[in-house]
Nucleic acid binder design. Structure first.
Length: 644
RNA sequence: GCCAAAAUAGCUCAGUCGGUAGAGCAUUUCAUUCGUAACGAAAAGGUCGCGGGUUCGAGUCCCGCUUUUGGCUCCA
């Protein structure tokens, strides 16, 4: 007999060899029907895998990430099984479950697989599901595994196996398909009631640019057909929120081939929106003791040699600008920090001057790889809401906490759900970073401690640090669930060293300041993109390019409509007249679609009484009120929203 | 940069087997002067991304380039 502990603390006895599904059955048939995966003593466990020792069990259903994971992992094997039946001589790489679905990387050999084949693949997958094949787990020795996969020509699998430890290798088999896999899986493919092959893409074997490029096939599956339908509708809806589409419709920004790829043009409405965001931050930062500075868009090559950027990125960035002077070279600035370091150096600094906080909406230029450009979220010229804080080592934590406050205030204010990530150095590849071990350890510890102090749950990821220091990043998801880094805080002991920055301490000796790089929005471009997707273009009233539009019933009331706009203008309400010769129904429709927060309809009744008939975007008719009542109400609402 | 797909009017998109390019919306003009999500009529609008090739003839087939999209790699 073995003792099995449940999450509620209860312990029950079972025969050795009992499976999680049998344990679930002992509780209720209903539970046994819905569980997809289990965890036994922190080990992922198939629900039909026997248990022979005491431990603690947890069950996972579809609603748990672990449940979906097992379901999709099995689906990925199902995809591979289908591909194996359809295409001769293909090789399999890896095929994991991901956040939304699964993929399988394959080397198609002689075959070509295109999106035209998706239907065929789905059909085969459904056919295989109908066979109700069991998914069988087996322990296998390293030698046997190498022989088995080698005999089948699966050299990619053999490479993976050769790196595994003997005695810990398992395979899963369904029908004629056997895969090297750790599991867990669902016991049969039968519950996979709906599958969809979503897309196809290239992916380097083992993520290494220098190795062979495989074909990655993405798919998703569900236990109910209806869930797939709902998911596909969700994808369609997400496409409507795409900031690239909204930016065009709302006339916020554009790109021109003549200007160049990844170089956004901000249109009048977009520029106004962006300026409002900048004003917000300037106001907040003033309270936190920041001073605005302005620096040039280019800098002498030597500046970047000093900062270390030239050695690391010189060849991969925009190439230098040459002057008529022999040998003189300038670079477009890829960041603002070197310039700010030079500002620090313009005067001797005392410990009494610190902390110094220099802020700049600084436009930077980075030569991103052509395939990486993406709307406004990944561009080659963008404006950071940048600031650099120079402080004494003692002040570091306090300053770091202050920055965290600003960032969480901003992200919360816009209603973003954000995730925090601490990006640490990869200790295996120290050559990728500048600075001594001591300095790195100190900086990494400062970030971790600050998060603990604020109670911020942050995921620690090694190898994601900037080359000059560790960082705390704030990530927000776009409409399709892709994560984008917005806010960032980076501790830097290196640049002050490289630029020889110092201050005189109370002991009358020279000391080195610590530097913090930070940007709450990250960049105005990326922030606006994510904000658009988050709000589906329905910007909050204080940010909306046009807050109200006046719709005269007929041209006879155009003059009165202009008068309304004049009154609104006195209250700083942004409004214009839709004086087109169209019927009121048409004007309402067009302006509703333009996502203008308020539509003000005026005709005979309103003009006689100095009133407007108010219609709120998406909510319909709100009745009439005096112009000044409406204007004052809006002004008040905006004032409340802009108290930062 | 790599793998794959796409590019036709301002926008969204059709265009069959290779035979002188089409719709809706937007625009302009005319008519209408209208009460809470699309009134009507007409006109104008195109080097079919760019360059080359095959062909009597190319939006359509082939090659190269550019840009965009989905991924990968990268990301100061």
């Amino acid at each position: 007999m073995i003792n099995v502990k449940f999450p509620d603390g209860n312990v029950k006895q079972f025969q050795s060899g009992v499976t999680p599904i049998e344990i679930a059955q002992s509780i209720s048939e209903g539970l046994a029907r819905v569980i997809l995966a289990a965890k036994y003593n922190d080990e992922e466990w198939d629900i039909n895998r026997p248990i022979d020792h005491d431990g603690e069990i947890r069950f996972f259903k579809w609603d748990d990430p672990e449940g979906k994971h097992a379901f999709w992992h099995t689906s990925s094997h199902l995809l591979a099984e289908a591909l194996q039946e359809l295409y001769k001589g293909i090789q399999f790489g890896i095929g994991p479950a991901i956040e939304n679905g699964f993929y399988y990387d394959i080397d198609p050999g002689e075959n070509t697989i295109t999106s035209a084949d998706f239907e065929k693949i789905e059909k085969k997958m459904n056919e295989l599901v109908a066979r109700k094949e069991a998914v069988v787990r087996r322990d296998i020795s390293k030698a046997d595994a190498l022989k088995f996969f080698g005999d089948n020509g699966q050299t990619l699998k053999c490479e993976l196996i050769s790196e595994l430890e003997d005695g810990h290798i398992t395979t899963y088999t369904q029908g004629n398909f056997t895969d090297l896999c750790r599991g867990p899986h669902i016991p049969t493919t039968e519950p996979i009631k709906a599958v969809k092959v979503l897309s196809i893409a290239g992916a380097y074997w083992r993520g290494d640019e220098k190795r062979k490029q495989l074909v990655r096939i993405y798919g998703i599956s569900f236990p109910k057909k209806k869930m797939l339908e709902e998911y596909l509708i969700l994808l369609e809806e997400a496409k409507k929120r795409d900031h690239r589409k909204l930016g065009k419709e709302m006339e916020l920004f554009a790109f021109s081939q003549n200007v160049g790829p990844g170089l956004p043009l901000w249109l009048p409405k977009g520029a106004a929106l962006r300026n409002r965001l900048q004003d917000m931050l300037t106001k907040i930062q003033r309270k936190y003791g920041y001073q605005q500075v302005i620096t040039p868009h280019i800098g002498n090559k030597m500046l970047y040699v000093t900062s270390g950027h030239y050695a690391k990125y010189g060849k991969d960035s925009f190439q230098p600008i040459h002057t008529p002077e022999e040998g003189e070279e300038y670079f477009l600035k890829p960041m603002n920090c070197p310039h700010h370091c030079e500002i620090y150096r313009t005067a001797p600094r005392s410990y009494k001057d610190l902390p110094l906080r220099f802020a700049e909406f600084g436009t930077v230029y980075r030569y991103e790889q052509s395939g990486e450009l993406h709307g406004l979220t990944r561009v080659r010229s963008f404006t950071q809401d940048d600031a650099h804080l120079f402080c004494t080592p003692d002040q570091l934590k306090q300053e770091f906490l202050g920055v965290m406050e600003i960032i969480s205030f901003v992200l919360t204010r816009f209603g973003f759900d954000y995730e925090a990530q601490i990006s640490l150095r990869d200790p295996e590849h120290k050559e990728k970073y500048v600075g001594t071990d001591e300095v790195w350890e100190k900086a990494e510890r400062a970030i971790i401690e600050a998060c603990e102090e604020k109670g911020l749950k942050a995921k620690q990821v090694t190898g994601e640090a900037a080359f000059y220091g560790p960082k705390l990043d704030f990530m927000v998801k776009d409409a399709l669930g892709r994560r984008w880094q917005l806010g960032t805080i980076q501790v830097d002991y290196n640049l002050p060293e490289r630029f020889g920055l110092e201050y005189t301490g109370a002991d009358n000796l020279k000391h080195r300041p610590v530097m913090i790089h930070r940007a709450p929005f990250g960049s105005l471009e990326r922030f606006v993109a994510v904000l658009l997707e988050h709000t589906a273009g329905k910007l909050p009233l204080w940010l909306a390019p046009d807050q109200a539009v006046v719709l005269p019933i007929s041209e006879k009331f155009n003059d009165y409509a202009k008068h309304v706009v004049d009154v609104l203008d006195e209250y700083d309400v942004r409004a214009f007249v839709d004086d087109r010769n169209e019927k009121i129904g048409k004007k309402i429709r067009d302006n509703e679609l333009k996502r203008i927060p308020y539509l003000l309809i005026v005709g005979e009744k309103e003009s006689a009484a100095e009133e407007v008939s108010v219609r709120k975007q998406g909510e319909g008719d709100k009745g009439s009120e005096k112009i000044i009542t409406f204007a004052a109400g809006i002004a008040q609402e905006v004032e409340k929203m802009t108290k930062f």
